[in-house]
């Protein structure tokens, strides 16, 4: 088993098929990354929202007692 290309240019051009192959690779990887980032963001957003909501409903005297 060996690398099928001799230079970086050959890897990029792939005998004229490079544009198709690399377009498929870039778009696929972007979709995969988006599928991980999007649930992580909504997860964090939900918890942040919930935290702010809980802080708003917490009794204000609790803070004043510290002074």
């Amino acid at each position: 088993m060996k690398i099928q290309f001799d230079s970086l240019n050959e890897i990029i051009s792939m005998d004229g098929h490079g544009a198709y192959v690399w377009l498929a690779v870039v778009v696929s990887l972007a979709i995969l990354v988006a599928l991980l980032v999007s649930p992580l963001r909504s997860h964090a957003q939900t918890l942040n929202q919930l935290r702010r909501q809980l802080e708003r409903h917490a009794e204000p005297p609790a803070k004043q007692r510290d002074d």
Binding site: I3, Q4, M14, D15, G16, G18, Y20, V21, A24, V25
Partner: peptide
């Protein structure tokens, strides 16, 4: 993408 041999008919596009 780099190690597999190219396809006899399709060349490198088969890598998709």
């Amino acid at each position: 993408l780099a190690l597999a041999p190219p396809d006899a008919r399709q060349g490198h596009s088969f890598r998709i």
